[in-house]
Structure formats: C-alpha cells, structure tokens
Design a protein around this nucleic acid. Structure first.
Length: 568
RNA sequence: GUGCUUAUAGCUCAGCAGGAUAGAGCAGUCGCCUCCUAAGCGACCGAUGGGGGUUCGAGUCCCUCUAGGCACACCA
C-alpha cells in the first residue's frame, strides 16, 4: 500500500532542502480530521529560515507538486501545511490489500530475526495467581505479534523449579508431610506447607539454615531431596497445564531453572577468567557499585547457586541454541534492578555481541488487592482458575438472559468470559499497577473484550444475512466516501503500523486500544447506516467493508490471545 | 538514606519520542429497538498533583516539592 507519509515527505523535501527521512518524523496526523490526513508544522523551520511559519507553509505549498492520484489538496492553516490524501486511492488500496492478502497485516519485516520471549514462568508449588496471569497474557500477546510480523519467535516458560524455596518445602514436608493430602489438591496443600515453614523460618533462623542446607543437598543430587522435588514438580505442572489449556497458551520450550544445573560451572569459570568475581562476606559477587547497580551475587557463601547464576547460564545456553537477536524477559518491575545487574554481568559471557545487546526486561506493574499486596506466604492470593470460572459463570448468566436460544452456550461463554479477562489485562499500559476489582475485570460494557467480540459478531451476522461476498475489484469505492466509512478505512490502513508500534515498544495495549477504536468506528457506522439496502452498489461496498472490519477484529483479538465467539 | 517508577474528569485509562479546541470508557442525567443483535448508538456533565524553568508552543523535556508503589546480597 502507498506510504502516504513518505510520499508527502518526499514532496516537501523537494520544496525545501531537507532530508526526507527527517521530514517524515515531523509529519503528524492531525487530531481533527478537518485539518487533513497529515500535517506538517512549519514552526521549527521559522528560526532557521528567519521567516514566519505561515509564510514558510505558503512557500512550500507554492513549490510543491501535487500528484492528484495521491493527494487531493494541500492547505495552509496557521503555521501548518495540511495534506488531504486521495480517499479513492486509499480506499481502493485497502480493499485490494484485504482481497489479495490471506492474512491481512501479516508481514516479513522480522524475517531473519530471532526473538525469545520468556514469560509466565510460574514457581512450582505455588498457586498460579492473577499476577502470573498478567505476565502470561502479556507475554503471549507479544509472542503472537512478533510472530505475525515474521520474526522467528520462541516462547519460553522459565519455570521456577529450583532454589531455596524447595529447600523450604522439603523441610516442611519432612516435618509435617503426613498431615497434608498432596494427591487431592497438590498446590493448595503445598502452599500451606510453604506458608507454615516460612513462618517457622522467621521465628527460628536455624530452620532457615536447614532449608538452605536442603537446597544444597538437592543441588548435590541427594536422592531423598531429588525424589521429593520431582514429585512437587510433577504435581504443579499438571495444575498449571489446566490453566494454560483454558487460556489457549502454549510454549515452544518449557525449561526450568534446574535445567541449568550442569551449566553453571562454566559461568563461574568465565567470570573468574574475566577477573570480575570477588569474594564478599563469604559469597562470590560481581561488584557493580561503580555503575550504581550495587552488587550481583553469583554464588552463596555455602557454595550453592543462586538465581543470577542460573539466569546467566540460561542466557548463554539461549545464545548458543537460538543465536537470538532479542530476548524479552516479561517480569514484574520489582525486579528492575536485578535485570540491570544481570544484563551487565552477561556482558562478560562468551556470547555474540548482538545477544548481549538484545537482552531486554519488559516490565509490567504489580497486581494488588484493595487490601494491599498479594502474597503467597500470607496466603491471600486470587487464583486464576477461580477468576476465569467466575468470569464464565457471569457470562453464562448474561447469555441466558439475552440470548436464551443460544447453542454452544458453554463454549461461547468460555470465549467471552476468558476474553474479557485477557483483554482487561492488556488494555492498559503494562507498567501501571493494577488494583484488582472483580466488577472491574468482569465488566462487559464499554471498552472491553466483549465489546470487540460483540462488534465482530455483528459483522458476521450482517454477512450471514447478506448471504454473499462481493468481489473487491467490483466495488464502487465512491460509495465509501462518507465520514464513517472513511474512519474505518483509515483504521484498517494503519493496522500493520499498529503492530509495528507494539513491537517497537513491547506494549500490547497499543493493539488493544486500536481494536477498541476500530470496533467503535464500526459501531457508529453500523448505527448510522443500513448495510443491507435497496442500492445494490452501496450494499456491496458496505458488505465488503463490514467483512474487512470483521477480519481485522478477528486477527487482532487472536493476536492478543482472545478467541472470537460466533454468536453472542 | 540511595535508585527506579507512577500522578490527566468522582472512578479506570488514551494522548503517535513538544504542536492546532486535552480524548474515551465506567458512574450520573437524558434520548434512540414496527429497522442488519440495545453486551449497541447519540447527547449532557466533568480533568492535566503544587511551584519554577527551557521553547514560538509543554499533559509530554529539565529542576524542585508533595503523594502512592517498587527495589537496594545469601528468596526468585
């Protein structure tokens, strides 16, 4: 499709002697459509050229050649040069693109680039709560979008299956294992043990030492510890899988921290050879004080490993295995300092420079309860299963009321309920904290997942009523020159650009917002116009547009990890 | 104490790496189903935390204050 912005920049660059790429960055999209489709503010040239902005605008306008196939007109308003693009061309191109491309917006711009996305990464033996949900949903959306743009994308679930916490669990199980029924409700019971042993550790430091000792034994492959650990792991994974199935999420690699056990010696060695490893209080650290990053611990004073060691081993392994260009860590912002340290220390590894530079912490805000922070140790967490089940239940109630005849009630309710929860997690800038509120998450009106789904279902139902789909090349595009249709056309035009923005900023909410805008534009259009009408040409054009909106809505929501219902 | 981060309408959020009159949703008030699904559409109401600065122009950049959140070595 024509890159209008670029074309306009080219024209301006011919009129005044400035680099067209630079000019392109100055061009903006006016807030008010009355001011055209693109605008070039001349203010910043005023000083250089020693002329009034308006005069500059006028002079550029004089010198510019208007290619009427691309631009309708150019106007000067204040210090702005306002460009009105050729609607016919835009409309034609969007419709043809839609007709010719099987998957609209799909691109190859990421070809030859490998992106790793580490996300979800729950801790074994701990409940999967709404904090993990946010992480999982953000990671999955990024994964899908990168992939759609042609990147070779690898999704990694870096399970927290190692560390002192297991020393604690083992200690707890040793002491009170027979009091708990692990088979029945594994995570619940393990959590109780975990909470209990943590309380004891706080009171009695010797117990904490015993826990650390257990982890050390686990690391040394003590058979009792390994056996227990494997049992905990198996039970937890089964539970997690239930949730991934509900959410429709899968990973290319599920590799726990424990996978790196035998890859850590090499890390010690590399850091040793780089002369950055120092002893401090009996532990091995890398001092990053001069960079304002404190110290990064690599080996504990009792000789056992720590998460940084395993993460470094993971980076090295991933560089060797995937030769990645970018590795995204979707992890809450509370670990911001840690990741800065990690990436800093990773510079000493024997991996390609592009891998070292491609490490990126995608930070998202915490999910809190109105009563404060969620804490597994405190036991006050909202579990994902509970939330999804409630969402589905509420949707079922609404369907029974609004559409009692509906078939596949269970299936559709699931798509809508889960869709609402996923969308809610992606609708806002991810760095912002969220205060969890049932009514907020499970609101189905306004800017929500169900709103987009509802809009989509409407497009489907119109198409069903029409019973045919006209050919794109036969559409009379003049029938789509009204404001409502044009709003939609412009939005569809900017779909790919929206996806690129998501990957530029690692911010899925940009796509979520876009889909709301598109659904709104269609809803207004739908309300204002009859699609099925007497005027056959008009009907064809509108049907085609309706179909296009439906396609983009579906592709977009799927990229966010949300399924579309057929009926609502 | 140091560092990071957030602050926009009663509530939840947008605001394209400074640009034209700051946009939505929810809540509230009011209209719209003899018409393709009212989980919808339209209208009204209502806002940039305080103070400086840079700039032709600041919600956006800088400084400062205030208020939340987070992190600062043997948890991950």
């Amino acid at each position: 499709m024509t890159n209008f912005k670029q074309k306009i920049a080219e024209q301006i660059s011919k009129a005044i002697d400035l680099d067209k790429e630079e000019l392109e960055t100055y061009i903006e999209i006016p807030k008010d459509v009355k001011n055209g489709d693109y605008a070039f503010p001349c203010f910043r040239l005023a000083k250089e050229l020693k002329k009034a902005p308006q005069q500059i605008a006028n002079e550029i306008k004089e010198r510019i050649e208007i290619d009427s196939t691309i631009l309708e007109k150019v106007e000067v308003l204040g210090g702005y040069l306002n460009f009105y693009i050729n609607k016919q061309l835009l409309t034609k191109e969007v419709l043809m693109e839609m007709a010719n491309k099987h998957e609209y917006g799909k691109s190859k711009i990421g070809e030859d680039k490998t992106i790793l996305v580490e996300y979800s990464s729950p801790n074994i033996a701990k409940p999967f709560h709404i904090g993990h949900l946010r992480n999982t949903v953000i990671g999955a959306a990024l994964y899908n979008i990168y992939q759609y743009l042609g990147y070779n994308t690898i999704g990694i679930n870096h399970l927290g299956d190692y560390g002192t916490q297991f020393g604690k669990l083992i200690e707890g199980y040793k002491r009170w294992g027979n009091e708990y029924n692990l088979e029945e409700n594994p995570i619940e019971e393990l959590m109780k043990i975990y909470v209990r042993i943590n309380k004891l550790c706080e009171k009695d430091k010797t117990v904490l030492e015993a826990c650390r000792e257990n982890f050390k034994l686990l690391e040394q492959k003590d058979s009792y510890c390994v056996e227990l650990w494997e049992k905990f792991k198996e039970l937890s994974l089964k539970e997690f899988q239930k949730i991934y199935d509900m959410l429709g999420i899968r990973f290319d690699a599920v590799i726990g921290e424990s996978f790196y056990i035998d890859k850590m010696e090499k890390i010690y060695e590399l850091l040793e050879n780089a002369h950055v490893l120092k002893e401090s209080e009996g532990a091995q650290i890398v001092d990053l004080e001069d960079k304002g990053l404190g110290v990064c611990m690599i080996r504990k004073s009792n000789g056992s490993s720590i998460y940084a060691t395993r993460d470094l081993a993971a980076i090295r392994y991933r560089a060797q295995t995937y030769d990645f260009d970018k590795c995204l860590y979707v992890v809450a912002y509370e670990q911001a300092l840690y990741f800065k340290q990690l990436f800093e220390v990773a510079q000493y590894l024997d991996i390609p420079g592009k891998c070292k530079q491609g490490l990126r912490h995608v930070q998202y805000g915490m999910v809190r309860l109105s009563t404060g922070r969620m804490s597994t140790r405190e036991g006050n967490v909202i579990k994902v299963e509970e939330l999804l089940t409630e969402a589905i239940r509420r949707v079922e109630d609404i369907i029974k009321e609004k559409n009692p005849e509906m078939k596949n009630l269970k299936d559709e309710a699931k798509k809508i309920g889960i869709g609402a929860v996923i969308f809610h997690n992606l609708a806002n800038t991810i760095i912002k904290d969220q205060v969890f509120d049932w009514d907020n998450v499970l609101n189905f009106q306004g800017e929500t997942g169900p709103y987009i789904q509802y809009t989509y279902v409407r497009t489907k139902s119109v198409l069903e009523k029409a019973g045919y789909l006209p050919k794109a090349e036969e559409i009379n595009i003049e029938k789509l020159s009204d404001e409502y249709s044009q709003d939609i056309i412009k939005l569809i035009y900017s779909f790919e650009d929206t996806l690129i923005q998501v990957t530029d900023k690692d911010e899925p909410s940009i796509l979520a917002r876009y889909l709301i805008d598109l659904a709104k534009a269609f809803s207004s259009f739908y309300n204002e116009n009859k699609i099925i009408t007497e005027d056959k040409e008009l009907q064809d054009a509108r049907i085609y547009l309706t179909c296009s909106v439906g396609k983009v809505l579906k592709i977009g929501t799927n990229l966010l990890g949300i399924e579309m219902p057929d009926k609502m």
